[in-house]
Computed example of a mutant assay.
Amino acid sequence: MTLSARGATPLPDTWLSKEGTAVLEVTLAARDSLIVPTLAVSPGAKGPAHVFVRRDADDFERVAVTEVAQLNGRSAITPTKSGAIATGDVVRVG
């Protein structure tokens, strides 16, 4: 097993099974955002990014959003218009 951090030199195998202290710096990437699949977010060519939100069985509305952060295939978004998308809304992927 090799332990490493982004941009760091891998730790030597001789450190395995040894006791020690690790210091981690954790950064909050997004606050007060909604999480959607990254594939649901379409970048805006001449404006904000957007997602398509289901309003009726076959009807989707384009909602302008700001993509705040991405991690592991998920994006944190905030709508540019307050209340345009909410927790539990269905978004179209792809």
Results as ranks from 00 to 15, higher is better:
Ser17Pro: 01
Val41Lys: 00
Ser42Phe: 13
Val26Cys: 01
Ala45Tyr: 14
Gly73Arg: 00
Val65Ala: 05
Arg54Lys: 12
Leu11Arg: 11
Val23Asp: 11
Lys81Val: 13
Arg54Cys: 08
Phe52Pro: 06
Arg92Trp: 03
Val68Lys: 07
Ala22Asp: 01
Arg62Phe: 05
Leu24Ser: 01
Gly94His: 02
Ala22Pro: 01
Glu61Gly: 04
Gly88Leu: 02
Ala40His: 01
Phe52Thr: 10
Ser75Glu: 09
Asp89Ala: 00
Gln70Gly: 05
Gly73Leu: 04
Pro79Leu: 15
Val36Ile: 11
Asp59Lys: 11
Leu16Ala: 08
Leu28Ala: 10
Asp58Pro: 05
Ser4Tyr: 15
Thr38Asn: 04
Lys81Asp: 04
Ile77Ser: 00
Val90Gly: 02
Thr2Gly: 06
Thr80Cys: 10
Gly47Lys: 12
Pro79Arg: 07
Lys46Tyr: 11
Thr78Gln: 08
Gly7Lys: 02
Arg92Glu: 12
Leu71Ala: 05
Arg6Ile: 07
Glu19Tyr: 04
Asp13Leu: 15
Glu61Asp: 03
Ala86Phe: 14
Ser42Arg: 15
Pro79Cys: 03
Asp56Ile: 00
Ser42Cys: 09
Phe52His: 12
Val90Arg: 08
Gly44Glu: 14
Gly47Val: 13
Asp89Met: 01
Arg6Leu: 13
Ala29Trp: 10
Thr2Lys: 15
Thr38His: 02
Gly7Glu: 07
Ala8Leu: 14
Ser75Gly: 05
Ser42Val: 13
Ala30Gln: 13
Ala57Arg: 12
Val93Leu: 12
Pro48Leu: 11
Leu11Met: 13
Pro12Gln: 04
Gly83Ala: 03
Leu16Tyr: 05
Lys81Gln: 11
Val36Tyr: 13
Val68Thr: 07
Asp56Trp: 01
Lys81Cys: 03
Thr87Met: 09
Ala40Phe: 07
Ala5Gly: 12
Gly94Tyr: 00
Ile35His: 01
Arg54Ser: 09
Ala57Lys: 15
Asn72Thr: 07
Gln70Phe: 03
Gly83Cys: 01
Leu24Arg: 06
Ile35Trp: 10
Met1Ile: 04
Asp58Val: 08
Ala45Asn: 10
Lys81Thr: 15
Gly47Gln: 12
Met1Thr: 04
Ile77Cys: 04
Gln70Tyr: 05
Gly44Lys: 14
Leu39Pro: 09
Arg92Cys: 02
Ala40Asn: 02
Val51Pro: 04
Arg31Asn: 02
Ser82Pro: 11
Val91Glu: 01
Ala86Pro: 02
Lys46Thr: 08
Thr66Tyr: 15
Val90Met: 06
Pro37Arg: 06
Asp56Gly: 03
Asp89Arg: 00
Val26Pro: 02
Val53Met: 05
Ala69Cys: 09
Val51Ser: 01
Ser33Phe: 09
Thr21Met: 12
Leu39Asp: 14
Phe60Pro: 00
Val41Tyr: 03
Gly7Val: 02
Pro37Met: 15
Asp58Trp: 09
Gly94Asn: 07
Asp59Ile: 12
Thr27Met: 15
Thr9Trp: 01
Thr9His: 03
Arg31Leu: 05
